[in-house]
């Protein structure tokens, strides 16, 4: 095993400074993903800069009525906060649907968003993988890809982003706050992760050394109803086969506001903007939901063994939206 140094700086500036001139260094959150990858030889940082105890451990209301979530907040803490459960229940639902409690206790918000794909080839250093070793090839396309992407993939990579939290945040129009040597900047969460294109080794748009400091949620949509639902092989402790986060506001039977994000279909949480646009002003009926989702999923390009994800994603989304539109029948879960 490669030896590495470990530092625990006191503030963000010190953390950023440690990484800026150290191309082999990495931030360490709870370590539940990064340390696993180090054991597998997939990641081999020579310096770990522990950011899990930086002063980003608060969940606070913003002046505008939104919520600011520190990057070091643990997944279990965030999921159980009263304000989160009341105002942004899908954040809680998404977190609690992922991993077991032991991992959630350790995992941080920043680390969760930047966890890497579960593609089995990516995790096996004995095999080629464009994401791990650019230019070596993508065996998943012809090989084992039942869990992999149907949207936004490229010939170079068909990996999916595994985070449940990111799907909920995408549907909530969250912003991600960053800091680097060049100063602070903010991005919509939906712009944080990249589609693979011909650079699948770049999961995100972050530059080396850029630190996530917080995630900010806008105020909840008045009268908006929301739900997160996840389909998986195993009842717990399993990544999504497909998941959907949706926020819906209906006025006079018509869709007034809608946000839909899919998980496990692409290399990033997939905001269904085509469907959202199609639905605005339309009657909140199952038929309309189905047609809009079909338009979104027309872009799907399934591989040999993951075609089931198309009907699965459609049915998940339609049923969630229908439940949100008619809470008296079934209601959101």
């Amino acid at each position: 095993m490669k030896e590495f140094r470990y530092e625990r700086p006191a503030d963000a500036d010190a953390a950023v400074a440690l990484l800026t001139d150290a191309p082999g260094a990495a931030y360490l959150g709870g370590g539940t993903n990064l340390v696993d990858l180090m054991k597998l030889g997939v990641a081999a940082p020579d310096l770990l800069v522990d950011v899990s105890r930086l002063p980003f451990e608060e969940v606070t209301e913003t002046d505008g009525g939104g919520l600011s979530i520190g990057a070091a907040v643990r997944n279990s803490t965030l999921a159980s906060r009263g304000i989160v459960r009341e105002r942004y229940p899908i954040v809680s639902e998404a977190l609690l649907s992922g991993a077991p409690a032991q991992l959630r206790n350790a995992a941080t918000v920043g680390g969760n968003l930047l966890q890497r794909t579960r593609c089995l080839y990516f995790q096996d250093v004995g095999k080629p993988c464009n994401k791990r070793q650019p230019g070596s090839g993508c065996p998943a396309r012809e090989g084992v890809h039942r869990d992999l992407a149907i949207l936004g993939a490229s010939e170079h990579c068909v990996a999916t982003n595994p985070s449940d939290l990111a799907v909920a945040l995408a549907a909530l129009d969250a912003m991600v706050h960053l800091v680097s040597a060049a100063g602070p900047r903010s991005l919509p969460l939906t712009e944080l992760h990249r589609l693979p294109g011909d650079e699948p080794h770049r999961d995100t748009v972050l530059r080396h050394g850029e630190l996530i400091t917080a995630v900010e949620l806008p105020p909840p949509v008045p009268d908006g109803r929301s739900a997160y639902r996840k389909a998986r092989d195993r009842a717990s402790f399993a990544f999504a086969l497909a998941s959907v986060a949706a926020v819906l506001q209906v006025r006079g039977g018509l869709v007034h506001h809608v946000r839909i994000a899919f998980g496990a279909l692409a290399a990033r949480p997939w905001r269904a903007r085509v469907a959202e646009e199609a639905l605005l002003g339309q009657p909140a009926t199952e038929e309309a939901f189905g047609q809009a989702i079909d338009r979104e999923l027309a872009a799907a390009r399934p591989l040999r063994d993951n075609g089931y994800k198309v009907p699965l994603a459609r049915r998940l989304a339609v049923s969630v939206l229908a439940d949100l539109a008619a809470p008296e029948h079934g209601g959101p879960r």
Binding site: R146, A231, R232, D233, L241, D305, N306, G307, Y308, P311, L312, R315
Partner: peptide
């Protein structure tokens, strides 16, 4: 009997 197997006939 994975969801992947049941989904096509159910759908």
């Amino acid at each position: 009997i994975h969801p992947a197997v049941l989904m096509p006939p159910l759908a």
